[in-house]
């Protein structure tokens, strides 16, 4: 068992935990998006670590990293689009006030 692989995976796990905390605890849409970014960052570390330490000869791993980076950018773009629309309509992006769909 290599310590490098474990270190990288633990970093990913910690980032995932911090991201989960952020996404659940924050009241603002933009802050929640930051939490999601951290979760995705955790996924990125794991992917790079898997490529480097388990399958350095298969470049599908690096390819996957590129796709996740794309997803991060898309999440930002669409999230900000929604944020702008909501801010125009309601004057705030506080998630405590977003109760229109609550049963």
């Amino acid at each position: 068992m290599s310590p490098d692989l474990l270190l990288a995976l633990f970093t990913g796990a910690a980032l995932f935990g911090v991201g989960i905390y952020g996404a659940l605890s924050q009241t603002n849409l933009v802050m929640i998006m930051m939490g999601v970014e951290l979760i995705l960052a955790g996924a990125l570390v794991n992917l790079v670590a898997f490529w480097r330490f388990l399958h350095p000869d298969s470049y599908a791993g690096q390819m996957f990293v590129l796709i996740v980076m794309t997803v991060m950018a898309l999440e930002m773009a669409v999230g900000f689009g929604v944020a702008i629309a909501r801010f125009r309509a309601r004057g705030s992006v506080e998630m405590e006030e977003a109760t229109e769909l609550q049963g």
Binding site: S2, A13, I20, S25
Partner: peptide, 29 residues
């Protein structure tokens, strides 16, 4: 949230620790 974060991190770390990852390659291209 703190509970969820800690549980999530510990669970993922546990998976990382207890999964048999097989042979680790030490040379990168």
């Amino acid at each position: 949230s703190i509970l969820a974060g800690v549980v999530g991190a510990l669970a993922t770390a546990g998976i990382a620790l207890f999964t048999p990852w097989g042979v680790v390659v030490n040379v990168a291209p």
